[in-house]
Design a protein around this nucleic acid. Structure first.
Length: 760
DNA sequence: TTAGGAAGGTTTTTT
DNA sequence: ACCTTCCTAA
């Protein structure tokens, strides 16, 4: 965001008075016990609701599952239900609503306030757990100022673990290890259990790393993202007194996007509702898109078994999209075999057909999108009602360039990217160290940034000395002369470094984060380093960070803020949090980030084999189904117009490569879509030239895709490089192990598919 | 110890 | 194309 957000040619710098997209997350806990502002009668809340919606809203006690199709008014039901409960059976402060992003949490709080209910807690799982751990973390080995390690910090910790074990297991990259550890954590398998269960060679290598990694996190008073959830789950599981206290506080619990909860989140939701079972979950199995990070779709599928007394309400009427859009999305999702049947329908008026645009290359695709947005606005539409979705972030580049060229304002939903920038991480590392002196990942990051003559050798000496005398590193830093092997020069630098930290800590105690940050940037020499390197981006971004701190200061003028809390907010920022709907700009984001949003006009670009479904998912049926759900989520965001595009050529790794179209395109219903052919200029080439593009003759090979293994009677086994319908025949490039690359016509080549699908 | 260049590996999605 | 890491020279 910030500078990323404002890359468009137009001026989008927001004034300070305006709410910064990410600063809005600070309001996430709304514990203020206000009065229910008007004496709204409960019946009023039921007006304008359909029968099933009303059923869900008025179901007061006991478990409730709301299976809500896209655009079925789910958010409305949730907020009305919370409001209804608050003025019939309970008070606002006894309601806990858990959503997927901070942005959604804020929105829910805001909508409830508009319904006259203030004081409910609206939060994400991660924020809720973090706050819980700040209070009760001592029971699971965390001090109140623990650091939250993101992926980069985790990687650093893993590297430390590997070093400590004297392992040079280059067979695994740290990120592979991290994945394995994260997966284990998501299943609530701790390092001890993992070690006991380790069967194959992989697991036996990873087990000691997992153990060492956990040790390092504990030493540094740090928790990774997974820890937030699993430590909170353990807290609830092991401490009945705490559970009782929380259950008394939160008597009605509501979990949104339940299809994307993992095992730890499931345990937390359960743990909060053991006695009253006033748990209401909402979600849609067809929109489960986070299986890859441990989400367990069975949580929602088995809700009725978990809670035999559960009431189930299905919301199937769609109020969002045109019948064409809904029918197209429905036709696609029906191809998923592991699925509960659901009938989607809408009473909305017919609109335009869904458009499927085949483009020459990624540039013409981008130009096409920009041109169409221009036309939309020329016809009276607003930029703010347009979104472009893609499978991978890298695809935003072309689109951004084309929008800039066309002077179209846009925002990219990449809230986290800002905080991952080097200059921001460096600056924050100083503050992290002040908040949590045990945060060695932060220490190692900046002890020699900017360079002050403290090399690897010195740092290791200091750290091992600290370990030897059993004192915290920061304490040892202050008396460098007592460390063997540290010369006078290094000692001077160490003292200077310690003094800077002390000064920053003092500035933080003064209560202004803005001042503390300004001082950090100046005193540490970071600012000087950036100007020396003429790194204008770094300077601008650091300024943005300072503004962000200033905004926090302003919102916590009453003294309710803290450095730890500010850092926590930053750690838990989501990409979606960076979107400002008021900005009046086109929104660019990944399909994952699109969940829960809606726009009048939607473009889904790069719908090509290998991209959607992504090549990493393509070999496993379950993963292809998740990719299909992702496509479904994207399609169903559209209210009025939906355009799906693919390019015949796309740059990958610097080289232009032939693509083949996504198998999902063949699943769109012919009669609901309009096919377009887009030339180099990004203009449609006549309307009905699409026929040669449709794989009319090649239905037989429609399922064949890039990367698939095939067997040729003469050449043996090979892999499909590309598949392209051409004039009633299907051409394909195949790379054979023994005979190199060949171009074949599938109708004649007598290729057999070699099935590489894993049963999952 | 640092800087700078060459080589080499790498790419999904994210709280 | 891009980033990280490794290597070498100063």
């Amino acid at each position: 965001m910030f500078s990323l957000l404002t890359r468009s040619g137009l001026t989008l710098r927001r004034s300070h008075a305006k709410r910064s997209p990410v600063s809005s997350i600070s309001a996430q806990f709304l514990d203020i016990r206000w009065f229910v502002s008007d004496s709204r009668r409960p019946e009023q809340l039921l007006e304008h609701l359909t029968e099933p919606q009303r059923e869900a809203v008025t179901h007061a006690t006991g478990p409730l599952l709301v299976v809500a199709g896209p655009g079925s008014g789910k958010t409305r039901v949730i907020t009305h239900r919370a409001a209804y409960l608050a003025c019939t059976v309970t008070q606002p402060q006894h309601i806990l609503a858990i959503t997927f992003t901070n942005k959604a949490a804020n929105e829910m709080a805001e909508r409830m306030r508009r319904l006259g209910v203030a004081g409910a807690t609206c939060s994400t799982f991660h924020s809720f757990c973090a706050r819980l751990l700040r209070m009760y973390g001592d029971r699971v080995g965390l001090g109140p100022d623990f650091s939250i390690y993101d992926e980069a910090d985790q990687t650093a910790a893993i590297k430390q673990a590997i070093e400590r074990l004297d392992l040079d297991a280059e067979a695994f990259t740290p990120s592979k290890m991290l994945n394995a550890i994260s997966k284990a954590k998501n299943d609530m398998i701790d390092a001890t259990q993992y070690t006991e269960q380790a069967r194959d060679w992989n697991e036996k290598v990873i087990a000691p790393v997992y153990t060492a990694y956990e040790q390092i996190l504990a030493e540094q008073n740090a928790a990774d993202f997974d820890d937030l959830l699993i430590k909170a789950a353990r807290l609830l599981g092991d401490h009945a007194d705490l559970r009782d206290r929380l259950e008394d506080r939160y008597r009605y619990v509501l979990v949104d996007e339940y299809q994307d909860t993992n095992h730890a989140q499931y345990l937390i939701a359960r743990g909060l509702c053991l006695q009253r079972e006033n748990l209401c979950v909402t979600g849609d199995p067809d929109q489960s898109i986070y299986g890859w990070r441990g989400a367990n779709i069975h949580n929602i599928l088995q809700f009725e078994e978990d809670f035999p007394s559960a009431k189930v309400v299905r919301l199937e009427q769609n109020y969002r999209s045109t019948p064409q859009i809904l029918a197209a999305a429905d036709a696609v999702i029906r191809h998923n075999r592991k699925r509960k049947r659901k009938e989607l329908w809408t009473g909305n008026a017919a609109g335009r057909p869904v458009r499927v645009a085949g483009c020459d290359d990624a540039q013409s695709e981008a130009a096409f999108v920009a041109g169409q947005i221009g036309e939309h606005v020329a016809a009276g539409g607003a930029y703010g009602q347009v979104a472009v979705f893609y499978r991978v972030n890298a695809l935003s580049r072309n689109i951004e360039a084309a929008l800039r060229d066309a002077s179209i304002p846009y925002q990219v939903a990449r809230g986290v990217a800002f905080f991952q920038r080097k200059e921001i991480r460096d600056t924050l590392a100083y503050l992290r160290l002040v908040a949590n002196p045990l945060d060695q990942v932060a220490l190692r990051r900046i002890i020699n940034v900017p360079a002050r003559g403290l090399g690897e050798v010195t740092v290791e000496r200091v750290i091992s000395h600290a370990a030897a005398v059993g004192r915290p590193v920061l304490e040892v830093l202050g008396q460098p002369e007592s460390i063997a092997g540290v010369g006078p020069r290094a000692a001077g630098s160490l003292r200077e470094f310690t003094r800077m930290l002390t000064d920053i800590a003092a500035a933080v105690r003064q209560g202004s984060l803005q001042t503390a940050l300004e001082q950090t940037v100046r005193q540490t020499g970071l600012a000087q380093m950036w100007s020396r390197d003429e790194d204008d981006d770094a300077i601008a971004n650091a300024d943005e960070l300072i503004n962000f701190a200033a905004e926090y200061d302003r919102q916590h003028a009453d003294g309710s803020g803290s450095l730890t809390d500010w850092l926590q907010q930053i750690s838990l920022v989501a990409d979606q949090d960076a979107i400002d709907p008021e900005l009046g700009a086109v929104t660019l984001m990944t399909l994952h980030a699109a969940k829960g949003l809606e726009f009048d006009v939607v473009f889904i670009v790069g719908v090509e084999d290998g991209l959607l479904p992504h090549e990493r998912a393509r070999d496993r049926k379950a993963e292809v189904e998740e990719e299909r759900r992702l496509f479904f989520v994207g399609m169903t965001r559209a209210r009025r117009n939906l355009t799906i595009s693919s390019a015949d050529w796309r740059d990958r790794r610097g080289m232009s490569q032939r693509t083949s179209r996504s198998l999902f395109l063949a699943e769109l219903p012919r009669d609901k879509i309009a096919l377009l052919r887009i030339g180099e200029d990004g203009q449609p080439n006549g309307d009905e030239t699409a026929d040669e593009e449709t794989p009319a003759s090649s239905d037989e090979f429609a399922e064949w895709r890039q990367g698939q293994l095939v067997r040729h009677p003469k050449y043996g086994v090979g892999r499909l490089l590309w598949v392209q319908p051409r004039g009633g025949r299907t051409h394909a490039g195949v790379k054979f192990a023994a005979h190199g690359q060949k171009t074949l016509v599938l109708e004649f080549a007598k290729l057999q598919a070699v099935d590489s699908d894993d049963a999952d």
